[in-house]
């Protein structure tokens, strides 16, 4: 079929166009991401010993921190889902102008540094912070409440930081849902709740899953918010890794902890890819 002027080329060469276009990004990632990660993995088995992994996976202290990290990430994910799903839905119902305003309210905080947003929570939650002062002015409490330096404050601040990461993927799925389907369900006699659980939720589920996966995975690596709002008692795995690198100079163990975190993150990603949408 091919003309004699254009000899048959092997398959991989026919892909050359897209491949060449992607080459800079691929090289960039290989050089600056894959390379260092491989070095990290090598460092974790320095001296041909798996002792660092044995310690990371059997020592109660580090297991505790891993479990706490997963627990915090899970709570933050659920909080983002409960808060973000209705917001994403409301955004789909707004007129163009109001939706733009709504997106600005979501995007501007997202583009603000995590450090600044964490400090903002410290101003709100502190013993002489805005919330405590208001409560005392209104006579609702006579001494400042301990709102900060505990688990709830870390979760509130993390959920605030990560909320846009949930809203955006969910929104992108919701706008593609055909409204006629909801009207059809209504016309066939389904209640509002049934329409939601049997039509709308299954149709938007891929967005929920994508948003939840994103929030969960980013939560796993959170460092600055627990460091500032946790008061030293709420410790996530990134804080432990930092301490091993900076204070204790045990880079082999820090690498092992990092690799365990990486594997756990990939496992979460893989699991989320396999989860099917619930059937109505």
């Amino acid at each position: 079929m091919s003309s004699p002027a254009e000899p048959r080329r092997p398959r991989w060469l026919r892909l050359e166009g897209p491949f060449v276009l992607g080459l800079p990004a691929i090289l960039f990632l290989m050089l600056l991401f894959v390379g260092p990660v491989l070095r990290l993995m090598l460092m974790s088995v320095e001296g041909g010993s798996l002792a660092a992994y044995e310690k990371a996976l059997t020592d109660g202290l580090y297991l505790r921190v891993f479990l706490d990290t997963f627990e915090i990430a899970a709570i933050v994910t659920v909080a983002c889902a409960l808060l973000g799903y209705p917001v994403a839905y409301v955004l789909t119902t707004l007129s163009r102008g109001w939706a733009a305003l709504g997106f600005a309210c979501i995007m501007i905080p997202m583009l603000t540094s995590v450090l600044v947003r964490t400090y903002a929570w410290m101003v709100l939650l502190g013993r002489s912070g805005i919330i405590n002062r208001t409560l005392m002015d209104w006579g609702l409490t006579d001494r400042p409440l301990a709102l900060m330096y505990n688990l709830p404050s870390v979760i509130v601040a993390m959920a605030h930081v990560l909320l846009p990461m949930f809203i955006l993927p969910v929104y992108s799925v919701m706008v593609r849902v055909d409204r006629e389907l909801l009207r059809a369900a209504d016309g066939l006699g389904a209640s509002g709740w049934q329409t939601f659980t049997r039509v709308y939720l299954p149709l938007t589920w891929p967005g929920v899953l994508a948003g939840a996966t994103l929030v969960f995975i980013i939560s796993l690596g959170f460092y600055i918010t627990p460091a500032l709002l946790g008061g030293g008692r709420i410790v996530m795995i990134a804080n432990v890794i930092e301490n091993q690198v900076q204070a204790l100079l045990d880079w082999r163990f820090a690498s092992a902890l990092s690799v365990v975190l990486l594997v756990a993150t990939l496992a979460v990603q893989a699991a989320s890819n396999r989860v099917q949408a619930p059937r109505g």
């Binding site: 002489s128 301990a146 900060m148 460091a227 008061g231 030293g232």
Partner: peptide, 19 residues
């Protein structure tokens, strides 16, 4: 102990903020 401080600037700030 309300806070176990981790960075050098924290202690003075904790006193100033009455934490």
């Amino acid at each position: 102990i309300a806070v176990w401080w981790t960075t050098g600037q924290q202690p003075a700030q904790l006193l100033i903020d009455r934490e």
